[in-house]
């Protein structure tokens, strides 16, 4: 649609803000889902495998990384 007036532009930006807000709210809700255990387990396994491969014992600080 051509011939935008300033008023229409303001309407448009109000709608755009509402859209952005909805999107952010949706995304935030997804982010609040618990991280599945499989990922935490996977990281532990990777970490353990690395430590073993290095064969230099457990690096200090590793015990802190739960």
């Amino acid at each position: 649609m051509q011939g935008h007036t300033g008023n229409q532009d303001q309407d448009k930006s109000a709608v755009t803000d509402a859209v952005s807000m909805k999107l952010r709210r949706y995304y935030a809700t997804v982010m609040e889902e618990a991280i599945p255990d499989r990922f935490l387990d996977l990281l532990e396994q990777l970490d353990a495998a690395d430590n073993e491969q290095r064969g230099k014992g457990v690096p200090k600080g590793a015990a802190d990384d739960k």
Partner: peptide, 16 residues
């Protein structure tokens, strides 16, 4: 469907 928009009502000039 953006409710916030409809809250302004159908009259776009008053919304502005």
């Amino acid at each position: 469907s953006v409710e916030d928009y409809h809250e302004f009502g159908p009259d776009s000039s008053s919304a502005a």
